[in-house]
Amino acid sequence: MLRTRIIPCLQLLDQNLVKTIQFKRPSYIGDFANTARIFNELEVDELCLLGIRNTRNKTTPDFKVLKQVANECFMPLSYGGGIQDFETAKRILAMGFEKVVLNSASFRNPQLITKISEYFGSQSLIVSIDVKKGLFGRERVYSCSGTRTERYSALEWAKSVEEKGAGEILLTSINQEGTWEGFDIGLVSRIANAVNIPVIAHGGAGSIKDISAAVKDAKASAVALGSMVVYQKKGMGVLVNFPDRTELKKYLSNE
């Protein structure tokens, strides 16, 4: 059995599953319930669902959708998007989700990290950190679906959320997201080696070799996959799938 968690990460927009490229141009993937059902049948390690425009559009999570997913799936579930207060997080966890994911709210209301962690345990909380390289390769952290620049570096913010009680970090490279060109190994490595909580690498996976690089070279504790699990291959049509477990074991056996 693999020690590394391989987590399908699905994007939800207006009750539809979509896939973006560098946080832009969302393309329709399919029905959320059917897709969740397929991953349930594939017995994936964990499933992450992100409402990608909730905070930006000032909308709350779609609780009807979340309830359907929670009723359909038996693997551990996490959800992020539009969670701005403790009561919303509490409601989602009460539905059967094991974890909530905070991004924008962690900047506007950082004490929410501590409150959720102290009440439910740090294992129930993932803080999502979205990072983008600008001119001259300068990295900045973004919120609100990659539209708002924050004043922290990725390293500063990762250490800060760990101190506040985050149980895990979902680390996304905006530049790499949806490109199939591999993870930002340097970014993942810097953060994974600077904190003592699990770092989930996300953004850019195009092959099992990319997964291996994130785990073996960059020391990620887990990997979140988007394009690889909803498309046949780069440039080809939609196909909900999961990497071949024999191949995964081959590349990750010495982790």
Score class of each variant (00 low, 15 high):
V65S: 15
F63E: 04
K64G: 04
C73R: 04
Q84N: 08
Y79C: 02
V65G: 01
S78Y: 07
E72H: 03
N54M: 07
K64H: 13
T60Y: 03
T60R: 09
K67F: 01
T59Y: 01
R56F: 09
T88G: 04
T55I: 02
F86Q: 09
E72S: 09
C73W: 02
D62F: 03
R91W: 02
A89F: 08
R53N: 14
A70Y: 02
K67D: 13
S78F: 07
T55R: 00
R53Y: 10
A70V: 06
N71Q: 14
R56P: 00
F74L: 07
Y79M: 05
D85K: 09
K67M: 08
S78L: 11
T55Y: 01
Q68N: 14
Q84R: 15
C73E: 05
R53H: 12
K58F: 15
L77M: 09
T88V: 12
R53G: 00
K58Y: 13
P76G: 10
V65Q: 05
G80H: 06
N71W: 01
Q84P: 00
K90D: 12
L77I: 06
G81Q: 05
N57V: 03
Q84T: 15
E87R: 03
A89N: 08
I83T: 09
V69M: 04
T59R: 07
G82C: 09
K67R: 13
G51D: 15
R53Q: 12
G80W: 12
G82M: 05
D85N: 15
P76S: 12
R56D: 01
Y79W: 04
M75V: 08
M75G: 03
K58M: 11
